[in-house]
Simulated assay, not measured.
Amino acid sequence: MTRIPLAPLTLGLAGLIPFVWGAATYLNDDLQAWGASTLGPRFVGPYVQLFYGSVILSFMSGVLWGFATKAEGARAATGYALSVLPALWAFFMTGGGPVSAGMNLIFGFAGLLLLDYAFYTWGLTPSWWMRLRVLLTAIVIACLAVGIWL
């Protein structure tokens, strides 16, 4: 694997802000109160994480779809079919309470990492893709876990 280019690394890390913010406001009552009064109650704690997590799984479906365009024949058809799974997972599995929705997002992001690996092994991603995806996924799952287990 090669080094992650600065732009994808920076943007990927910036994309973690709602997950990290959600975990921080879950752990710190004063920060949660400030965030709720300043930004609104849906932008703190598990609420921001769950909504944003669904958005990101849907976004990643689009990324995988883009990778599938680089394939041909049966591999392309498989890639397209697999690429819609994260969005469908987010749509169907993030209802209910915050604990079950958070747990399902963790499973969704873990499953997405498996899909990332499949597209990587098929040669459809940049060579640095898995380095970036493992880093981002580990942080996302850790942040989501705060709302479930702490």
Rank of each mutant, 00 (worst) to 15 (best):
S37C: 01
S37F: 00
S37H: 03
S37D: 04
L39C: 04
L39A: 06
G40F: 02
G40P: 09
F43S: 09
V44Y: 05
V44E: 00
V44P: 09
V44N: 01
G45F: 01
V48M: 08
V48Q: 07
Q49C: 11
Q49H: 12
L50N: 13
F51Y: 14
Y52Q: 03
Y52H: 11
G53Q: 03
G53C: 07
G53D: 03
S54V: 05
S54G: 15
S54C: 12
V55E: 08
I56A: 07
L57P: 10
S58Y: 05
F59R: 00
F59H: 04
F59A: 09
M60Q: 10
M60D: 06
M60N: 11
V63I: 13
V63Y: 07
L64K: 02
L64H: 07
W65A: 14
G66W: 00
G66V: 02
G66E: 00
F67E: 01
T69G: 15
A71N: 10
E72F: 10
G73D: 09
A74N: 12
R75C: 05
A76R: 13
A77N: 13
G79E: 01
A81T: 14
L82W: 00
V84L: 15
L85Y: 07
L85V: 14
L85F: 12
P86Y: 08
P86G: 14
A87N: 11
A87C: 15
F91W: 14
F91Y: 14
T94N: 05
T94H: 02
T94C: 04
G95P: 08
G95S: 14
G95C: 08
G97K: 01
G97P: 07
P98M: 03
P98K: 04
V99Y: 13
S100A: 12
S100Q: 13
M103K: 09
L105Y: 00
I106E: 04
F107S: 10
F107Y: 12
F109I: 03
F109D: 01
A110Q: 06
A110N: 09
A110P: 13
G111A: 07
G111N: 06
